[in-house]
Amino acid sequence: MQSIRPVVVLISMLMGMILSPHSNAQTTKIIATGGATQIEGAGGGGIVPWAVVNGYGSSDEWAATAVATSVAVDDFTLRVLGASVSYDNRLELSFARQTFDLDTLGGSLGQDVWGIKYKLVGELLYTSIPQISVGLQYKKVADFGLPSAVGAANDAGLDIYIASSKVFFDAIAGRNILLNGTLRATEANQIGLLGFGSTHSSDYQVMLEGSVAVLLRDDIALGYEYRQKPNQLDFAKEDDWQDIFLAWFVNKHLSVTAAYTDLGGIAGFAHQNGWYLSVEGAL
């Protein structure tokens, strides 16, 4: 059983932020520069964390986001509820609860992801060097029964990543593009839904993740993402993930992202393709 404690903590953080006399949530950053929220709760694209800090708070400002995401592929459905608070366009704290329904097999998996991201250097729009951030994602599965049965070693794990993002103005046909590259050290099986490590290898592996997006308008981004993944469990091959997304930043308080995803083989079920839909609200 998953407790509701993380949700309570997050709501407390949000309330504290809103009620604090010195820190009003602001929406000063330029539209779309807060990005979307990826499936582990970090500001980013759909499946890759970017160096951007979630929400629209600029220097000395707070921001908060909440997100609901569904990824429905042939034999599985991933549902994510997440929230984040950010400060100073530099520090991002996030929480995401993932539920992974085994539509064909029956039953479900799940995990909680606590994230922290810190901007080291650079400004997405303004500096010649990219914006570079480091992040941690602490993950713990809801029920270790199935992950353990298929050979996972641990029920919790820590991903460590460094992400580099930059917007290039007037890059293609007068449109701005965003490039992002992320290196992630991880021992997660299927991003952690199938536990961490295996009975014969529990070493961290460094994975490469990348995103490219073109801003068709100031408020609409069309992009592609690729996420390399480890393949440590003997019972079934794990594939890299990719998606093509279209994000519409309706305003600085609401964005909607739709994507077509290719999750490859999962737990012996090949060619898991389907639709990703995410709705995000921001203060």
Partner: peptide
């Protein structure tokens, strides 16, 4: 001039 000021001006 802070980053927030600059963001406001760009906007």
């Amino acid at each position: 001039i802070t980053q927030a000021d600059f963001d406001v001006l760009v906007g």
